[in-house]
Nucleic acid binder design. Structure first.
Lengths: 193, 193
DNA sequence: CGATTCTTTGAAAACAGTCAATCTGTGTGG
DNA sequence: CCACACAGATTGACTGTTTTCAAAGAATCG
């Protein structure tokens, strides 16, 4: 499965075969079954995790016990809890596989060594973070300014690859609306085509 | 006013007098009157901007013409549009002073030169970004999981320095609720003490 | 097929938004 | 110093949206 990552990375940055071999040598491949968690709240997230195939979500429980989806991840995305990673403190989140999945992971120390050795990789990592931040900003805007229906259509349009693969009630929890409301919006939508 | 920034930075990182002088030499001080904008949508945000004193907000107009506050900034915060800055593309946002303010700014190129020359500054800049990202995550969680009332109390608790300085209707637009709703929540609150 | 999970539906209740009017405080100019 | 204008905040009545609760249909999986 490293091949998947290799193709991904070569699309993103210029990298020599030697450097790529360094990256490969430091990586570990891991498979997860559906519903298996790769992060449980209370644990510290110490890895970089690339999704070679499959589907994940990062979520958290509210006071009342309901769960709230902070993020999804599908093939060729990264999934992580940056807060736990950066500050090496116990995570408040859970990350679970929504389907059988394969991930490529690197220990934090190994990734940092790789970034030191390969400047392009450091730059790329920084850009990834920046993209994530930008996506957060746009999501905040949609959460404070859109109606439930607008949030739904925007999500469907922006992340079709996610939308088609995850249970509806998780999309609802991602958008901050109830599953029933999402179901009704959806109904109206298919009606008016 | 550079003194304010100097104190701020010395609290955050170890830095020599020479390096600090480099940073000072590259900086520009600018004063803004109340309601003056430092970024208009369509412009490209090419600076790093530290708020030495005063108060700002970053906002955007929705389809219907109403404005939505993405972020506030007060003394000793940074304010920026990362998306425009990183990708050097026209901003979709506006940044305006909510009071007479003084900012210390650096051109993007100058700041990058400084980061190259002063590793600790580069590290610090990365950490700033990381903190911003983490704050975004927490805000997203509150937006998808809290009621209007909970969002209000959390904001008041988390950012008292902002809460006491900005008009209520802007807080409302930040929380994604109407000013009338915020007003009513507030009333209930003072009633039950 | 039976069990479980996911989705849909209906009806009522809670919640938040809109519109319009009023109130409050601040600052300006006469 | 007063009158006025203005922006911000509040209030009431109403409307519309979203949630909740309960139940019933699909779909999936062993």
């Amino acid at each position: 499965m490293f091949k998947v990552f290799e193709e991904y990375l070569r699309q993103k940055i210029q990298i020599s075969d030697e450097d790529l071999e360094l990256i490969r040598a430091a990586s570990i491949e891991r498979k997860l079954r559906k519903w298996q968690s790769i992060l449980h709240e209370g644990e510290i997230w110490r890895i970089n995790c690339f999704i070679a195939s499959g589907c994940f979500r990062l979520y958290r429980f509210g006071e009342d016990g309901t769960d709230h989806t902070l993020r999804f991840g599908v093939d060729n995305w990264w999934i992580s809890d940056q807060e736990s990673y950066n500050n090496e403190k116990p995570s408040e989140y859970n990350i679970e596989a929504l389907a059988g999945s394969t991930v490529i992971i690197w220990d934090k120390e190994k990734w940092e060594a790789l970034m030191s050795a390969i400047p392009a990789l450091k730059l790329f990592t920084e850009q990834l973070l920046a993209r994530g931040y930008e996506a957060s900003q746009r999501r905040i805007f949609s959460l404070i300014s859109y109606s439930a229906e607008e949030k739904y259509t925007e999500f469907q349009k922006t992340y079709p690859s996610v939308f088609n693969r995850v249970p509806l009630h998780m999309v609802a929890s991602y958008l901050g609306i109830s599953r029933e409301t999402l179901s009704r919006i959806r109904k109206e939508f298919t009606k008016h085509k």
